[in-house]
Design a protein around this nucleic acid. Sequence first.
DNA 1: GAACTTTGTGAAAACGTTTTCTTGCTTTTC
DNA 2: GAAAAGCAAGAAAACGTTTTCACAAAGTTC
Lengths: 341, 341
Amino acid sequence: MDSEAGGAKLIDVAKRASCSPATVSRVLNGNPTVNEEVRERVLRAARELGYVPNGSARALRSTRTRLVGAIIPTLAHAIYATMVDGLQARLAEKDVSLIINTSTYDIDLEYEQARLLVERGVESIVLVGSLHRPETLALLEQKRVGYVFTYTSDAAEPGAAVGFDNEKAGRTAARYLLDLGHTRLGMIAGITQDNDRAKGRLDGFLKELAAVGIDRAKVPVLEAAYRLDDGRSRMGELMSRPQRPTAVFCGSDILAAGAIKHCHDNGIAVPRDVSVMGFDNLEIAELTSPELTTLEVPARDMGRLAADYILASPLQRRHLRQRELAIRLIVRGSTAPAPAR
Amino acid sequence: MDSEAGGAKLIDVAKRASCSPATVSRVLNGNPTVNEEVRERVLRAARELGYVPNGSARALRSTRTRLVGAIIPTLAHAIYATMVDGLQARLAEKDVSLIINTSTYDIDLEYEQARLLVERGVESIVLVGSLHRPETLALLEQKRVGYVFTYTSDAAEPGAAVGFDNEKAGRTAARYLLDLGHTRLGMIAGITQDNDRAKGRLDGFLKELAAVGIDRAKVPVLEAAYRLDDGRSRMGELMSRPQRPTAVFCGSDILAAGAIKHCHDNGIAVPRDVSVMGFDNLEIAELTSPELTTLEVPARDMGRLAADYILASPLQRRHLRQRELAIRLIVRGSTAPAPAR
DNA sequence: GAACTTTGTGAAAACGTTTTCTTGCTTTTC
DNA sequence: GAAAAGCAAGAAAACGTTTTCACAAAGTTC
């Protein structure tokens, strides 16, 4: 009786506890208007039958799925994986499940994935960055699915944002290197197409330089996918120019690690000959030699705070809608004052 | 009409296409018995209304959720994040969604998460390792939820396994170091409690040493969480023993990187004074100096193959049930022949 | 002690699909 | 040219819950 294929249903529990399905439902949902003795009976029956509720039926009737979706570029980068780790952990505390999709930085694919998530009935969606297809956001708004941007601090109207100001971060990096006396600077940026974060960092960097009279046309900028080898080869290009930069800002620690690797292999001393600066402060920032000066991105916190926003009541949400987190400069050994001319 | 709160339902599509709900359902599910002209009408109506099917209703009626669950220790370790990346990508190709849970190596928590996943209606579950609470597997079997172990090659009867033989891997590491002439070896293992993989590697390592007459009681073994700092401090303990080992095998690249860091900071030359070997072949293995000799774990492939198993028909599954993947030895600079005595 | 609340419970409708069973029509077969 | 078969489409039941409404029984108020 209790081990039928598939398993017992709510009505079976009701029968065994000699009460109505309605009462069982009430007990299972913590409705306090149920007599203590009956509640015990129901719980016992459920336990004895190994009853597991059917989430689909529950979701269908109650329109609450307790499902959240996240679309991130990839899980292969620690910076995203860590955010998701924080997000999932916080959501799980409230028995909310997380469906993950990786878009590989493709906003068309992102749209398709958002559609599927909506179909699955997610109540909210976590996105990375603020640049998305208009159709994506329109869909979410039409279907009343809340969304949160991460890794950025600019929210789109009905949505929220938990992150930081990428442009400001780029400026901070530039300011730090300028203060060290560098005047010939370069940047290895992430691919800026369809990527507001990579673009923001680059823009901020160039803006700060422009502010002290360094023409952006004179600043060598190369773009690279976030891979060690790409960082390495781009650094090679940068250092083979007639006027070598004395400081290079990289859009991520991976790129910076690659850059340092290139220097290592080619007898370029870091930071004596060239300062290298990263972005993210991943674990790898402590593994390069010299260790990496970088900007710390609060990845796990973003995930947690995005979860907090999602779990908050509509009233509380107002306060949490737009959160700009601090980016911290972590100075290690890969940067030094500009060499005297 | 088309922009009502929540959105159009299947019956609205039917009305607009002047046909019955049944027909709409048939079109949407690719049932070929529908007239071409009607099909077009339905598709157009659906598009015009911005119709998105209700997954809960669909799942309830058809008992197919197209949902898969994964429970991994954490996403903060690249080795697991990469596996999930591969798993998700492959599943997404077939419009199957992935719900992720992180158990933080806690098999009791894992059980709770499995329960919730079953409630959500996942059709299969991906687990890490072969050591789980009996209740967990019993639940999955009773509810007819298929499961796949990863990072191990031993499958439990109705379940499958996609991974490698951890003990064999441990033996391979030992054999390699022995062949270099080392006789004083040590190991920094992962925490072996509730972790069959860490335990397997340790056992294999010690077994191979025992086979050449090195008593396991004489082999210093320390356990550590998979963190840089733990690797570093354990290496400190190992190297402060009266009889320093000349080769240390670490249960993961993170630990090995920490170990090398300790050596760096304390004037111990790697590999001259001590050989250090890692496990996983993560990106960081190329960042230590010297670069890390390690064993390559096919993380992404495991994810992909687990997905293949899940997506396969019951018939095909038989062939895919138990897959042992090769572990490859990657020799880099952190190991060298034992110093002459 | 009659009228009104309150409390605990059950009956039945509802959620939005898919699927089974019919039905009416067209095509094939002899 | 009538019977059989095939085909496209509709009507209605079903999936397993939650929720609304109704209703007794018990408690409260004047």
